[in-house]
C-alpha cells in the first residue's frame, strides 16, 4: 500500500470517529465530517450525471451535427427536444420567464403518472389482493415438513395472513365505534400491526449494529495495515500519520478545555 493510500485510509477512520463523536455531544469534528459527506455526495453526483448522463445520452447523440446549425443537421436531431425542455427548467430562476418551466414539468409529470398508475395498480395493489384471496391450501395446511409456521405456502400461514390483514384493515375503519365484537376484531388488528412493527424494529436494530460493526472492521483493517509489522503492506512511516492526527486532536481538546475554564460565567438573570 502506498503512503498516500494509507493517508486516505487514516482520513476515513478519522471521519468515522468524528461522526461517532456526536454521540457524546455536538463538536467541530462532527460538523466537519457532516459537511464533508454532504459536499462530496453533491459534487460526485454532478460529475456522474455529466459523464454518465448528459455526455452519452445527449452530447454524443448530437455530436455529428454542427453547432452553427444548432445541431439540427445531426442524424438524431429529435434529441434537441428533451435538451430544450431540460433547458426550460432553468427559467425558474427568472421571475419573468418562470412560467416556461411549467411545460417540461407538465410533460415529466404527465409521462410519469401515465406510466405509474396502471403499473402500480397492477403490481402493488391487485397482485397483493390476489395473493391474499388465494384459496387456503388444506392439503398442505401445516407445511411441507410437518408443522412449519415459517412456510409461507402452508394453509395455516395463508389463514394467519388473511385473518391478520382483515383485522388490521378493520382497525383503520373509523366510521363505527370500536366496541363489542367489532372492537375485539380491531384489537386483533392492533396486535397484527404490533407484530409487524416489532419485526421491523428487530431488523432496524440489526441494521444499526451492522453499520457499527462495519466501522469496527474498517478500524481493524487500518490497524492491521498501519501497525502490524508482520503485515506485508506495513510501512515504517504509517504510525507517524496516526500520531500526527492524535496530536492534533489532543491539541484541540486542550484548547477547548482551556477556553471553557477561562470563559466568564454567564449571568442567570437576564440583563435589562
Amino acid at each position: 500500500m502506498t503512503f498516500s493510500a494509507f493517508l486516505w485510509m487514516t482520513f476515513g477512520i478519522f471521519g468515522t470517529l468524528a461522526i461517532f463523536s456526536f454521540l457524546y455531544k455536538d463538536n467541530p469534528f462532527y460538523k466537519f465530517a457532516e459537511h464533508l459527506v454532504v459536499g462530496v455526495s453533491a459534487g460526485y453526483f454532478v460529475i456522474i450525471l455529466w459523464h454518465n448522463g448528459l455526455t452519452p445520452n445527449l452530447f454524443q447523440r448530437l455530436a455529428d451535427g454542427d453547432w452553427y446549425f444548432l445541431f439540427l443537421n445531426s442524424s438524431k436531431p429529435w434529441y434537441l427536444i428533451p435538451a430544450i425542455l431540460g433547458a426550460m427548467m432553468w427559467t425558474r430562476f427568472s421571475a419573468q420567464y418562470a412560467w416556461l418551466s411549467r411545460w417540461p414539468m407538465a410533460m415529466y409529470i404527465g409521462i410519469a403518472t401515465g406510466i405509474a398508475v396502471p403499473l402500480e395498480m397492477a403490481n402493488r395493489i391487485n397482485k397483493q389482493l390476489f395473493a391474499m384471496m388465494e384459496p387456503i391450501d388444506f392439503a398442505n395446511f401445516f407445511g411441507t415438513q410437518g408443522f412449519d409456521l415459517l412456510d409461507p405456502t402452508s394453509g395455516l400461514s395463508q389463514l394467519i395472513v388473511f385473518v391478520g390483514a382483515m383485522c388490521a384493515l378493520i382497525y383503520f375503519y373509523f366510521s363505527k365505534a370500536h366496541e363489542g365484537v367489532f372492537g375485539r376484531v380491531a384489537t386483533v388488528g392492533i396486535y397484527t400491526l404490533m407484530i409487524g412493527f416489532g419485526a421491523s424494529f428487530g431488523y432496524t436494530v440489526m441494521a444499526r449494529i451492522s453499520l457499527f460493526i462495519n466501522r469496527i472492521q474498517a478500524i481493524e483493517a487500518w490497524r492491521a495495515t498501519g501497525f502490524d509489522e508482520s503485515n506485508p503492506e506495513y510501512h515504517g512511516g504509517f504510525p507517524a500519520v496516526f500520531w500526527v492526527i492524535l496530536l492534533g486532536v489532543v491539541a484541540y481538546a486542550i484548547v477547548e478545555i482551556y477556553q471553557h475554564r477561562n470563559r466568564p460565567p454567564q449571568s442567570e438573570e437576564p440583563s435589562a
Binding site: 406510466i115 405509474a116 403499473l119 402500480e120 397492477a122 403490481n123 402493488r124 397482485k127 397483493q128 390476489f130 395473493a131 409461507p152 395472513v161 409487524g196 419485526a199 421491523s200 431488523y203 432496524t204 436494530v205 440489526m206 441494521a207 451492522s210
Partner: peptide, 30 residues
C-alpha cells in the same frame, strides 16, 4: 417490482437493508 418484474415478468431477487426487509415480505409471499 412495478416497472421491472410486473411489466416484463423476469425472476426478481432482492437483497435489502435490515430496515427495509420486513416491508418486502408480502411481495415474496405473493
Amino acid at each position: 417490482i412495478s416497472y421491472g418484474q410486473g411489466r416484463f415478468g423476469f425472476p426478481l431477487f432482492f437483497g435489502l437493508t435490515g430496515v427495509m426487509t420486513a416491508q418486502y415480505y408480502p411481495f415474496y409471499g405473493s
